[in-house]
């Protein structure tokens, strides 16, 4: 990619990131000395600018959760490079790694599982401070300020309680307070509201936006729900079977999806309106086995528009005039 004007450096840069997971071997594979792998991520290149909020959407098994874990250095890539604020993640160790851990935080998927049931809420939120070696004398203030950020008023009412004494919405606020207590710059939230009731969900989404704006956070939201991320992220990355198939402004992706897979995803999202006539699903079949993905375009065996070239050549993720990226032989 050649750009004449040097762009401001992205906070997070991923270059051709690959992640393989070994799978259990059959007897014949052992005999032949083969080591089959699942290519959970197959060449992800992505820049996330400071202060951006991007959504990563796709179906179960598309690699979105693995990608989030790689961004936080919770797992290591099998190939490619990831840099945070200009520093390669695989070079971090000792103090630089601790500094990264303070700046990059994960918000867990299920608030009911994310907190140790035997720890009080105070201990749960103060734990990252303890791990980061922050002086104990500062803990109470830091916890209090994190609680204010997530709008849990009446601090003293919660601190001595245990997770089971809180509602789902309150727990999700505590989980967020825990992620914010170290004052991070970068947040990865994996399905942050999928376990919550709708009436509560709207409040948490508004809170996530508010916190992001107030703290100037860079945020990645991982979700299977395109309808939800529309309220959170200006940009959306669509993944299919370990690859990025489309990346662009969320409004564009929703209104004018370009990749056939994105079109299917948009068409499948149910809307809360019975008068809306929905077009039939443009694809059939299931996501293929990730151990044996199709040659060429990984989506081709479900694509209504596939032609010979799709089986022979992996479509490149090309940038269009509008700054949108699409990986399809029919586009561009």
């Amino acid at each position: 990619m050649s750009t004449l004007v040097p762009k401001e450096r992205a906070l997070l840069e991923l270059r051709d990131v690959v992640k393989h997971f070994p799978v259990s071997r059959s007897l014949s594979e052992i005999v032949r000395g083969r080591h089959p792998v699942v290519r959970a991520l197959d060449g992800i290149t992505l820049d996330i600018g400071a202060g951006d909020a991007i959504a990563i959407v796709g179906e179960s098994g598309c690699g979105k959760t693995t990608l989030g874990r790689l961004m936080l250095k919770l797992t290591e890539p099998s190939g490619g490079a990831i840099a945070f604020d200009g520093a390669a993640l695989d070079g971090l160790a000792g103090e630089s790694l601790r500094a990264f851990r303070r700046q990059a935080q994960l918000v867990f998927q299920n608030p009911f599982d994310a907190l140790n049931p035997r720890f009080t809420i105070y201990r749960a939120v103060a734990e990252p401070l303890l791990n980061a070696g922050i002086a104990k004398s500062e803990h109470a203030d830091r916890v209090a300020s994190a609680f204010r950020r997530v709008h849990l008023p009446d601090l003293e009412r919660y601190l001595d309680r245990y997770p089971h004494q809180l509602s789902g919405g309150q727990l999700q606020r505590v989980v967020l307070a825990r992620a914010l207590v170290l004052g991070p710059r970068f947040l990865v939230a994996d399905e942050p509201v999928s376990m919550l009731d709708v009436s509560v969900r709207a409040g948490i989404l508004a809170l996530l936006r508010e916190v992001r704006d107030a703290m100037g956070l860079t945020a990645v939201y991982i979700s299977h729900d395109l309808a939800l991320v529309r309220y959170l992220c200006e940009r959306t990355v669509v993944m299919y079977l370990g690859t990025v198939v489309e990346d662009g402004p969320t409004a564009e992706i929703v209104r004018n999806p370009r990749h056939p897979y994105t079109r299917a995803l948009v068409a499948a999202v149910p809307v809360p309106d019975a008068d809306q006539s929905r077009s039939p699903l443009p694809i059939s079949g299931n996501v293929p086995d990730a151990r044996e993905p199709p040659s060429g375009c990984r989506f081709r065996d479900r694509c209504p528009h596939a032609f010979a070239r799709c089986a022979e050549e992996v479509p490149a993720l090309r940038t269009t005039a509008s700054g949108h990226r699409v990986a399809c032989h029919l586009d561009g």
Partner: peptide
């Protein structure tokens, strides 16, 4: 409930919660 529900095709940029429980 209808307001609080995400709608891919609406123009609204905000979901409105029902406060309380």
């Amino acid at each position: 409930l209808r307001n609080a529900f995400p709608d891919l095709l609406s123009d609204a940029m905000e979901l409105v919660p029902i406060h309380g429980s």
